[in-house]
Amino acid sequence: MATAAAARPKTTGPSVKPPKRTFRPRTLVIAVVAWGLAALFLAPYLEMIITALRPKSELRDRTYLPSSFEWSNFIEVWKQSELGQNLQVTLLVAGGATLLVLLVALPAAYYTARMKFRGRKIFLLLVLVTQMFQPTALLIGLYREFYQLGMLNSVWTLIITNAAFNLAFAVWILTAYIGSIPAELEEAAMVDGTSRFGAMIKVTLPLALPGVVTALIFTFITTWNEFAMGLTLTTDPASQPLTVGINNFIGAYTVQWNYLFAASVVAIVPVIILFAFIERHVVSGLTAGSVK
């Protein structure tokens, strides 16, 4: 990525140059420490993959590696559950909630950042308070509400609920981000006859992209991994999200650890792929200055 950033035409952002960073041995030490930490961060997931590949008979062996890797576990896990269907639901819910959050939060954040209006503080407070309520505490009320509306087992319900619980962070981060973009640029556009909404879309939005991307990733990941609402608001295996589907490997008398972890690994992969696309932009946005 360093090369990718270097290849970029010019990076005129503030150049952050921590002092004395050309000192070689120091770089080496930093690299070693960083690589060690990276390994530490990945280790638990590596162990999950190893467990996923264990033959059933060696599941409870306290060894580092099994005698052989059972790659068929990854195929079995698809046959033994509705993973494909669950994955589709999760994709739909995470994608839908992310879009909804952006559609709803962006205008609100924009207006709040740009305008002084009565109730602005109350609005921001309301948003902050939402962040403090966890769905876990509200499950019965949520179930009751969506039952009365006849919306149980619906993808839309999961999209709406997940979006609502992620709004707070998105509004926060977008308000802050847009607030840091000089308003003069849009005003110039508005003098030229563009509406405020048009100015927001054409001028501010592109500049606020890193903020938008951050809010997007945050919402997507949180929704992707959401469990409690998925468990409560859906009961039909075909409309359950992945996290709930995985939970079904925990049964009355046994836990299918190898399948559980195989499915978990499958669940992580799409998020990592999303990161491969988007996180690069975040990182480059974040580091544009230092990697000249």
Binding site: R8, P9, K10, T11, T12, G13, P14, L124, L128, V171, W172, I173, L174, T175, A176, Y177, G179, S180, I181, P206, L207, A208, L209, P210, G211, T214, H281, S284, G285, L286, A288, G289
Partner: peptide, 16 residues
């Protein structure tokens, strides 16, 4: 975005 690294969200607190 690469031309200008906008100040991060961190720069301004959400609350204000």
């Amino acid at each position: 975005m690469s031309l200008k690294a906008p100040p991060s969200p961190a720069e301004t607190g959400g609350g204000r």
